[in-house]
Structures are given as structure tokens and as C-alpha cells.
Design a protein around this nucleic acid. Structure first.
Lengths: 155, 155
DNA sequence: AGCAGATTAGTTGTGCACAACTAGATCGTG
DNA sequence: CACGATCTAGTTGTGCACAACTAATCTGCT
């Protein structure tokens, strides 16, 4: 009785499994570049900003991550020579994250990765877009219902 | 140029974000029961087996996790009094994982959790089912293409 | 000016995930 | 039977995520 709790019926388990499976596809591709998957996402956020220089906080908002996760990760990217971190002159609480030349150059080497991962999912282009949009709606629905995100807490 | 790398266009980032957002919905609900989200998934796998007693390996296959993750997690569940672990008599390599009475009893307290999480996603029943099936296909496509899973490696 | 409260980044501690490895048990084949 | 290969669970080390906290800075208000 109560078949509602079967593992294979759970959307949450499908989501958890698929997320890890997709990361498994990225892992060997990124390993050649010395990157982990979250580091790759952070670089995507930096690359798409062009010359704009985000703060740790802005990066956290883009990635839905807090400083407890980002600070050590950015230190590792700094250690790898891909980014630099600089205290702002205007406001010394703020740290700006800048790509180094090596960090910018790395972008060329990831060009075909999204395509290769998309192929591995077995989904068509349209299915991928529909999936992405559904997932984005879910994330936004949860974040908007006063959930928790790395933003406001209770006052 | 090369807008293909924009963060918000990536299916992988949508998946990563949605997975963490859904976990955020579970967290406060499970915290009342003293469970983490992966522990909850492990209990789902145990509950649905009824009287059958899975081994660590079988549990790992159900959850797509290896012993490096499961062994410490099962120890914590054992510490919480929810499961017991027993070396098999027939084959001393094997460890069987059995629910305790407390572990079985906990099932009643999670009954309404899936429904509450489903509501938070903002998706209709049909959308949820379609999403689950798409994600399951993705996971299976990746695992079947000789990926990596906690199963065979290269020979 | 002065100070309470807010803001930003960082630190600490816990718990996954995963790779690489170890220890011990079992199996298969000669 | 011997023994190398295989199998199972566990251990170690790295890197996220996240809660809870700290330190330093800034802001608004009086």
C-alpha cells in the first residue's frame, strides 16, 4: 500500500539522478581542463560577463550559491591561475572576481562540450529546450515562494 | 559571440539549479525527522522493499551510489537507530541492511511530504509526470552508453 | 559625530559524491 | 587443491553545498 513513495515514481529522485548523470558526462571532459563541474559553471558566469567584473555576491546570485561555497571555490580557481580576487577600493567589504588571461583563454577549449553533453542525453533539440524551460520554471517557483535562497532570510 | 555558453541557456545548469531548489523544499520538512535528503532517498528504497533485505550493493544500484558514499551514510542511519547492518553468513563480503522498528515507523511521518514538494514546484500533475519520464530517459541514456555508473568499469 | 543595524566575504563543521585504494572473501580454472 | 582474478564493503582524500557563525565595513538616523 502507499505506492506513492516508490523511488522510481519520485520526480525528486529522477531530478537528483539526472543531475548527477549529466555531471558524469561532463566530468571526463572537464578533467582534461583541470576543472570541476561547479568551477565550469562559475567560469560560464564570468565569461558571459565580458569585461564587466562581478563581485562574489553577484556571482553567488547567478549560480544560486553562497559565500560558504564560493569563497573556497574561487580560491581554488585563483590557485589554478584562472581568476584574480581584488578588494574593492570603494567598498572594502566587496571582492571583485576578474578573469586572468589564462581564464579567458580557457573558453575556447570548452566550445564543443555543451554539444557533446546534449548528444549524450539522447534528447532532441526541442526536448532539451522544453526540459530546460520546465526546470527553470520549477527553480523560479521555489525561489519565489520565499524559500530560502542565498538571498533574504527571515527578518 | 558564442552565446551558446550563456549560463541561462544551459540545460545542465537548469538541472543543477532545479535539483538543489527541490532539495531546499525537502530540507526543512526532513529536518523535523532528523533526516537529510539522501538519507530519505535511502529509506524510500528500503521501505519499498517490504520484508526483502537488500545488500549495500543492491542499495547502491537503486540509488546510483557507490560504497564510498553509502557506507558512511548507512552508519549514520544506524547511529540514528533506523537501520541495522549485518554481515551475511553465506558470503562474508556482503552486508545486509535491515530497517529497525523505528525505521519502519518513520514511514508514516513522511506520507504527505511528496505532495507538499510537488505543490511547491508549481507544475501540474501531468507536467510532473512528463518531467519525471524525460529525466528518467536522460539518466538511462547516459548510464547505458557505457558511462561510468557504480557498475562496470573498463575491463 | 556616533552608533545600531545591515551588508559582504570568509570560516567552521557536517554530510554527501566520487576517485583511488585496501582488506577480506569467494570463484574459476588448470 | 592451488592460486590468480573477481567481488564486496570499507577507508582516505578532495571538492562541493549548506547552516551557523565571525570580522570588517558601510549606512541611516538622530
Amino acid at each position: 500500500m502507499d505506492r506513492d513513495l516508490e523511488l522510481r515514481r519520485q520526480v525528486c529522485f529522477a531530478l537528483y539522478s539526472a543531475s548527477r548523470a549529466v555531471t558524469d558526462v561532463y566530468r571526463p571532459l572537464l578533467e582534461e581542463l583541470g576543472l570541476t563541474y561547479p568551477q565550469y559553471l562559475a567560469l560560464l558566469a564570468l565569461w558571459e560577463r565580458g569585461d564587466a567584473v562581478p563581485t562574489v555576491k553577484e556571482l553567488g546570485e547567478a549560480l544560486h550559491l553562497d559565500s560558504g561555497t564560493l569563497s573556497p571555490m574561487l580560491k581554488r580557481l585563483e590557485g589554478a591561475g584562472l581568476v584574480g580576487r581584488y578588494r574593492s577600493d570603494r567598498d572594502e567589504r566587496i571582492v571583485e572576481v576578474r578573469l586572468t588571461d589564462a581564464g579567458r583563454a580557457l573558453r575556447r577549449r570548452v566550445d564543443d562540450i555543451p554539444r557533446r553533453v546534449a548528444r549524450a542525453t539522447g534528447l532532441s533539440e526541442n526536448e532539451l529546450l522544453a526540459l530546460r524551460d520546465t526546470l527553470t520554471r520549477v527553480t523560479e517557483a521555489i525561489h519565489s515562494t520565499g524559500a530560502h535562497p542565498p538571498a533574504q532570510k527571515e527578518k
